[in-house]
Design a protein around this nucleic acid. Sequence first.
DNA 1: AAGAACTCCTGTTGGC
DNA 2: TGCCAACAGGAGTTCT
Length: 295
Amino acid sequence: MPELPEVETVRRGLEPTLVGARIEHLLLRRKDLRFAFPDRFGARVEGQRVEALSRRAKYLIADLSSGEALIMHLGMTGRFIVEAAGAGPHEPGEFHAGLNRHPAHDHVVFDLGERGRITYNDVRRFGFMDLVPQEQLHGSVHFARMGLEPLGNALSGEVLAGLFAGKAAPLKAALLDQRLIAGLGNIYVCEALFRAGLHPELPAGVIATPTGRPRAKAHELAAIIRDVLTEAIAAGGSTLRDFAHADGSLGYFQHAFKVYDREGEPCVTPGCGGTVERLVQSGRSTFLCARCQPR
DNA sequence: AAGAACTCCTGTTGGC
DNA sequence: TGCCAACAGGAGTTCT
């Protein structure tokens, strides 16, 4: 489900309820998600106050008063649901069409007392949670090899060219590689490459030759990546199947897609006349307009 | 060592 | 209508 814009949207949705709240009780409805929960998870979380909620790439990080950081990743289908205090005990019920939520997949419930309740729901269970001392966060197994934050100042054309120089892997794969740039997923890579007029199968190194037009492409692509992500955050992310905000509302950046999930539709570029096509790279769908994105 | 393929899991969709 | 393969926003592990 969530790429960087969706995770940032979730973070903003959780922040008012979660930050400053005390986790009074943690209900684990199973012993693992993608990975086992950390040892003594409940004991290490219960009674702690949440001092801050931040995001790194597609990860959420809650700083606890104990000095530990609660790391949360939503995988493909993870989501949080915020409920007001007095909603009664947690009781997985019927499928809720309005929220497109399967309560049978409510796996973790944070009881925040007067602040209400936050429930983590994840159909496919590709998400996970972990606890790490705050001072070891950036050296932790989750973050040590992570690439640069695309919305930070670090993503310049120079840096991007440096990362991609000499790479034979396709542009699509290089942009999805979280060890290089962290936060992009399938949607925003397709959209960025369309806007940049770059074919997803071109070797990543093509934007990194030392001089001339290709080098300009690196600057352009870096700016486009920032733009696409910034616009998507402003739109509250993209709702395709099951992404929803913590309050149940939906994103609307999907209406701004130019190629993603638009196979067979006419290219939106004025005068292009091409058709959006789909191809498969590393087993995942890529959408492009071959006229706007020549090899 | 880079790059591709396979894997985890459940639900939905589209073609026959 | 039913059945079944393909596919889904991610990413760690295993292959070639």
